[in-house]
């Protein structure tokens, strides 16, 4: 229902809403993670490893970090818009941030499935 608001038709709303939606997802994930860890109580390495081999949990975790990266990207982008007024410099800096964040995502994939 809200997806139309994430299109180019809403250049202001789309990023504001994305930031909030990713925040909500991360909050829900953290509560779920806490409940899951308490219920399963993996108290040794074998249990901990089994816990992290559940595919749905891996996917949920990957989504969580994707949300975190999008959230961080938007936050840094906002800060740059406010402080870096030279457009060329800002675009270069944003590119660096995007590359670093993408590297983090790849790294996460290697940790989860490597």
């Amino acid at each position: 229902m809200l997806f139309e608001l994430l299109t180019k038709k809403y250049p202001g709303m789309r990023w504001w809403l994305t930031q909030r939606m990713t925040a909500v997802f991360m909050a829900v994930y953290l509560v779920l993670a806490l409940i899951f860890v308490v219920l399963k109580s993996p108290n040794d390495f074998v249990h901990w490893q089994q816990f992290w081999q559940l595919l749905w949990w891996q996917l949920l975790t990957f989504t969580f970090f994707t949300c975190l990266i999008i959230h961080a990207w938007l936050g840094i982008r906002d800060v740059m818009r406010d402080y870096v007024f030279n457009v060329t410099l800002r675009e270069w800096l944003q590119l660096v941030v995007e590359l670093v964040l993408m590297a983090y995502l790849v790294w996460l994939g290697i940790i989860l499935w490597g």
Binding site: Y10, P11, G12, M13, W15, W16, D78, R81, D82
Partner: peptide, 12 residues
């Protein structure tokens, strides 16, 4: 009129 990324959404 307030949909532009700056006019409204610069409020933090």
């Amino acid at each position: 009129n307030l949909e532009d990324p700056y006019r409204l959404y610069r409020c933090h």
